[in-house]
Simulated assay, not measured.
Amino acid sequence: MQNRRQFSRVLFSTDAQVIFNDHQYPCKLLDVSLHGALITKCDAFISNTNSNAILRFILPQSEIEIKMEVVVCHIEADHIGLKCHHIDIDSITYLKRLIELNLADDELLHRELAMLIHDTQE
């Protein structure tokens, strides 16, 4: 199977919350990219693909919160794939730094940022 990902994901496990229809559901962030995230599936979370939600998580040993508006892309037995469709400037700055530290490839990160900027301008 061909990998169609345009954005590198980094493994990053931390507690998170997904907010759907004004209800917060606890979950675990499994990995993250500039364009989305993979979270554990929580039993109470009932949603369909293409549903809008908000993903929030705090960076460990800090008070920095990353918050992104997401669309549910796929729901599997143990996890949910989310695609980011909006993120504020502070969150994207911290997310960029998190990925930069874990990716160890500045050139790849800058290419992905350019693709992300190009996508939002279309």
Rank of each mutant, 00 (worst) to 15 (best):
residue 63 E to M: 10
residue 63 E to W: 09
residue 65 E to C: 15
residue 65 E to W: 04
residue 65 E to K: 04
residue 66 I to V: 01
residue 66 I to P: 01
residue 67 K to F: 06
residue 68 M to P: 00
residue 68 M to C: 11
residue 69 E to T: 13
residue 71 V to M: 02
residue 71 V to A: 01
residue 72 V to D: 02
residue 72 V to Q: 01
residue 72 V to W: 01
residue 72 V to P: 00
residue 74 H to Q: 12
residue 74 H to Y: 11
residue 74 H to R: 11
residue 74 H to I: 09
residue 75 I to A: 03
residue 75 I to N: 00
residue 75 I to K: 04
residue 76 E to K: 05
residue 77 A to H: 07
residue 78 D to G: 06
residue 79 H to D: 13
residue 80 I to F: 02
residue 80 I to A: 10
residue 80 I to P: 00
residue 81 G to W: 02
residue 82 L to N: 00
residue 83 K to Q: 12
residue 84 C to H: 05
residue 84 C to R: 00
residue 85 H to G: 10
residue 85 H to K: 10
residue 85 H to R: 10
residue 86 H to I: 06
residue 87 I to T: 02
residue 87 I to R: 00
residue 87 I to P: 00
residue 87 I to C: 03
residue 87 I to H: 06
residue 89 I to P: 03
residue 90 D to I: 05
residue 90 D to M: 15
residue 90 D to N: 04
residue 91 S to K: 08
residue 91 S to Q: 14
residue 91 S to C: 07
residue 91 S to Y: 09
residue 91 S to P: 06
residue 92 I to R: 03
residue 92 I to D: 12
residue 93 T to Y: 09
residue 93 T to K: 13
residue 94 Y to H: 13
residue 95 L to M: 11
residue 95 L to H: 11
residue 95 L to E: 08
residue 95 L to Q: 07
residue 95 L to R: 04
residue 96 K to Q: 03
residue 96 K to Y: 08
residue 97 R to W: 15
residue 98 L to F: 08
residue 98 L to T: 08
residue 99 I to T: 10
residue 99 I to L: 03
residue 99 I to D: 02
residue 100 E to V: 09
residue 100 E to C: 09
residue 100 E to P: 11
residue 101 L to D: 07
residue 102 N to P: 14
residue 103 L to N: 03
residue 103 L to C: 01
residue 103 L to D: 02
residue 104 A to V: 08
residue 106 D to M: 12
residue 106 D to G: 15
residue 106 D to H: 09
residue 106 D to C: 13
residue 106 D to P: 15
residue 106 D to W: 11
residue 107 E to Y: 14
residue 108 L to P: 01
residue 108 L to A: 05
residue 109 L to R: 02
residue 109 L to S: 04
residue 109 L to C: 04
residue 109 L to I: 01
residue 109 L to P: 00
residue 110 H to C: 11
residue 111 R to G: 14
residue 111 R to W: 15
residue 111 R to F: 12
residue 111 R to N: 14
residue 111 R to T: 13
residue 112 E to M: 01
residue 113 L to P: 04
residue 113 L to K: 12
residue 114 A to I: 11
residue 114 A to T: 12
residue 114 A to R: 12
residue 114 A to Y: 05
residue 115 M to A: 15
residue 115 M to T: 15
residue 115 M to K: 08
